[in-house]
Design a protein around this nucleic acid. Structure first.
Lengths: 151, 151
DNA sequence: CAACTTATTGCAATTAAGTCTCAAAAGCAG
DNA sequence: CTGCTTTTGAGACTTAATTGCAATAAGTTG
């Protein structure tokens, strides 16, 4: 099946004279299917399962291309590497469980609204923002299911 | 004058059997006096003005030490480097002017409170968090004075 | 579909931030 | 001051990411 991302990527290629190559298709596919937040090495590992000849340099070049076109978002969650997720869903922020490395997505319109107000009060408009909350489990606390992330 | 930071650092040294060395004093001093958010290279440059023999490795070792003891906070504002500020004032978040690199500090108790609620709803407690809003000036907008930051 | 133009790739070399090793230097307790 | 131990400077090393380049492959043209 051709995803919304594929279409957007095709449109982008046509628009900018870029080529829709095998490696690019595979890397985009890996990212579209990822429900976690893989780093470049992990993306390369997964892409290599489909075509073992893909070079890590191509992964880096492709994620940069996708990021620059707004198809991908990159995050720096503390460890040195950048981690990626497709930007096809609505904006959200992250809770990071520091004991497991799991990342949980959340969204708060109230917080977004407050941010708008703060920026405006300083004479700015928001271009982007990031909110990351590093957490640990409450002792006897209730737990909601988490979307597991690779470390 | 001996700052609150100096005292805390002395206490820390005594406590952990660390030595209060020349380089450490100078680096702490540089950081205590910085009203911006310098990176390691900039801290090294400033420390070198006082003692040109200080090595960049010592800067990295010292900021790590200070960060681990909670005297310093490190931030990753998008460019690859870590940038530092002393943790002696109350917690705040950052507006980053993407056109100039200026960093403006702000604080919103309302946002903090909402974050608490979100974490708890997921069964977690907050260990730390970071909120960075990347902004650009409003067109005809009013402007507040900014604390200028080195790029 | 063969020829051609030019973007893209794989590979290896390179960069950049940060860390580590180690001999020499410097704190600090007695 | 002495001696023990931590810390330092210098440079080698690590790791994520980028780049140069010759070979390859998209996409276009005829």
């Amino acid at each position: 099946m051709k995803s919304k991302l594929d279409e957007e990527f095709e449109r982008l290629c046509r628009e900018k004279g870029l080529r829709l190559t095998g490696p690019r298709r595979i890397i985009l596919d890996v990212l579209a299917k990822a429900s976690d937040h893989p780093d470049a090495i992990e993306v390369h590992r997964r892409a290599s399962l489909i075509d073992p000849s893909i070079a890590i340099a191509t992964v880096y070049r492709t994620v940069r291309l996708l990021e620059d076109s707004g198809i991908l978002e990159s995050h720096a969650f503390g460890d040195g590497r950048a981690r990626y997720e497709t930007a096809d869903r609505e904006h959200h922020d992250h809770l990071i469980n520091i004991e497991t490395g799991d990342v949980i997505e959340f969204r708060s319109d109230e917080i977004e609204r407050l941010q708008e107000g703060i920026a405006r009060a300083h004479g700015f408009e928001i271009v982007s923002h990031r909110l990351e909350i590093f957490v640990k489990p409450l002792k006897g606390g209730k737990r909601k299911k988490t979307s597991r992330d690779r470390r």
